[in-house]
């Protein structure tokens, strides 16, 4: 195997892990609150700008600053759900196709992107962190250090999320609410609080991705859009609401993108991803890890 091929596989896996992690927030919010969050990419952008300004203004290590960024974005998500989405959710509780929430999250997307444009202008910004451009050598293969760190932190955070959801009573209440909100409330679960927490978690995860991208990806107001489409595809590939599905979907998309680029122009790899996406939808509409009965 050629060095270029090995490098592209490594790179694809690393980026794929980050993509999968990026999609977690989307799949979590959909799985629990049953809201399709069109502002997902914008929250990635918010995470990126937060990480960027944190670095520029304080020069705190970008990975250390996660300890501040995570609670900040959790609060943002919590309040977005509590103040903006909850009233619409309540008024549409009996509606079969709650369109109002889709319009709301799409509006939030436009609002956040344009707010960033207003505040920071359209320019691409690159944060010159100590990790930017740093490389590891493994045999004859060069690996980008910030991508490796992003991959590892993504993996670790997913592990923490997994333990939270599987082992704690809060996590069980979150999953129970996702599976049957009415009965969960009969068991004494304050489902609207669970929604707030889930949305907060989803946005915090999204924000982590954004901050992890900062050392190796330029920041600009509509950067979220690039990731948005991938995140939606990954989530559908893996099965809406499924965490392992999102991770596996991410790895697949990352690999296709990176390895495909060895054989064709990058504009074609994007097309290839869509072909595979359509194939999965055709053969297994519920996604790789989805359950039919949830529909």
């Amino acid at each position: 195997m050629s060095v270029a091929m090995k490098e592209s596989i490594f790179n694809g896996l690393l980026m794929g892990g980050v993509y999968g992690f990026m999609a977690l927030g989307l799949t979590l919010i959909f799985g629990i609150v049953k809201v399709i969050n069109f502002a997902h990419g914008s929250f990635i952008m918010v995470g990126m700008f937060t990480g960027y300004w944190f670095w520029v203004l304080t020069h705190i290590d970008p990975y250390l600053s996660l300890l501040i960024i995570v609670p900040l974005l959790f609060l943002l998500g919590y309040q977005v759900q509590n103040v903006l989405i909850k009233p619409v959710l309540k008024s549409e509780a009996e509606v079969r196709e709650p369109i109002g929430i889709l319009v709301l999250t799409a509006g939030l997307w436009l609002f956040l992107d344009n707010l960033a444009l207003l505040l920071f202008g359209p320019n691409f910004r690159t944060a010159e962190t100590p990790y930017t451009g740093q490389m590891f050598k493994a045999g004859d293969v060069l690996i980008s250090a910030p991508k490796l760190y992003a991959f590892l932190i993504s993996l670790a955070t997913t592990g923490i999320l997994y333990i939270l959801l599987k082992k704690t009573l809060l996590g069980k209440a979150i999953r129970a609410t996702g599976q049957n909100r009415q009965v969960a409330s009969l068991m004494g679960v304050d489902i609207y609080k669970i929604y707030n927490i889930s949305f907060g978690l989803g946005v915090a995860l999204t924000g982590v991705t954004g901050a992890l991208l900062v050392p190796f990806y330029p920041v600009y107001p509509n950067v979220g859009f690039v990731f948005d489409i991938r995140a939606f595809m990954i989530v559908v590939l893996g099965g809406l609401g499924s965490i392992p599905g999102a991770l596996l979907g991410g790895l697949i998309v990352g690999l296709i993108e990176s390895v495909g680029a060895q054989f064709m122009a990058t504009s074609w790899t994007a097309g290839l991803i869509f072909v595979i996406f359509l194939l999965v939808l055709y053969l297994r509409p519920e996604g790789m890890f989805g359950f039919k009965e949830e529909w």
């Binding site: 049957n180 009415q182 009965v183 409330s185 009965e293």
Partner: peptide, 30 residues
């Protein structure tokens, strides 16, 4: 509903309403 439950009114809902993707033990914990 969650405050009614806190007052000590529990329900066996119509159609059972179990949490399908939680284990039996987790259902009981809920």
């Amino acid at each position: 509903p969650h405050l009614v439950a806190e007052m000590g009114v529990m329900q066996v809902p119509e159609g059972r309403g179990i949490f399908p993707l939680l284990t039996v033990q987790e259902n009981l914990e809920m």
